[in-house]
Write a protein that binds this DNA or RNA. Structure first.
Lengths: 161, 161
DNA sequence: GCCTAGTGCCACAGTCCTGACGCGTTTGGC
DNA sequence: GCCAAACGCGTCAGGACTGTGGCACTAGGC
């Protein structure tokens, strides 16, 4: 019962879920409530993905692959965009923490020589999520492991011959 | 007077353009008419970008850089997503021609050794537009030339050290 | 079978958006 | 200054969506 499109009507969401619109309103008091629940679920999944990847402790390449694999799974389960969630301050704070954690990891990856240090500010941090979303969307049949292989290879080595 | 968001209200679009809503309706008979005009302008710009890049004739690396540079400019001028345009059959046909032209170019780039031939089907064709959109969005102050440098480098060599 | 929880369906009021009308005002060319 | 084109503003009717009330029906446990 997912709404990848925040602009979709409650009717459309209900129909997609095979339930009546009234049923949706029994579960969620408003559209805002529904979206908040979806975003909260995604945020929680992202937090688990980050913790599981041990971004601060595991070897950089290992942590990167595990994180990418985890997030591809999250993207497939919760195909919504967290940057569009600007609801309550608590959720925003949690999202900011997650973002900062990934930023710190990318800095670590740069410091330890995995990523180039000549990139424009924020390029890596913007590129990685795009690649993970692309893999989730473009390769729906590919398991998360091989999909992560593809993303990591594309990220680190590009697709040039 | 652009609407990056197809769901934006005509009021919002008019306000962003600094005109009255009634003025928008004097220029476009309907929301559909307005969107069609925006998409048509983008499509035409994309077609020019492709023609200017000489995807079939110029050396592959030259054509690629020129194409990327051109499309980044287009993305900045017309930040709309052509895949969401499903209007009249004629526009769809033109869009399909443009897509096919870029696909053929990517195959040429692979055949001539610029791109790896071990990629999943469609990965390069999906990745390149994402990178160009990302550069247009993430690096608004970077000129199209250097932005194209960044995209081409990221595409071919990744961001690994 | 009884009972409770959950469901689907219908309808309503309110809000926002769309497309359009009408009119006074503004702008620019001659 | 005159005139036509364009503008802004207020308003209207209709449609889509939201949130909600009410009721009959369904499903599952006992």
């Amino acid at each position: 019962m997912l709404a990848a499109d925040p602009g979709a009507s409650i009717s459309a969401i209900a129909a997609a879920a095979g339930v009546d619109r009234r049923t949706v309103y029994r579960r969620f008091t408003s559209r805002e409530d529904l979206l908040a629940a979806v975003y909260a679920a995604r945020l929680e999944a992202v937090e688990h993905a980050i913790a599981d990847a041990r971004l601060r402790e595991a070897p950089v390449a290992v942590a990167l692959h595990r994180y990418v694999e985890n997030i591809i799974e999250v993207n497939r389960t919760w195909p919504v965009d967290l940057t569009r969630m600007l609801a309550d301050p608590e959720s925003r704070a949690r999202r900011d923490v997650a973002v900062a954690e990934v930023d710190a990891f990318l800095r670590r990856a740069t410091d330890e020589g995995l990523l180039r240090d000549s990139l424009p500010a924020g390029w890596a941090a913007a590129l990685l999520p795009e690649l993970m979303h692309l893999a989730a969307r473009q390769e729906p049949g590919l398991a998360a492991g091989p999909a992560a292989d593809l993303v990591v290879a594309t990220l680190l080595k590009g697709i040039g011959a």
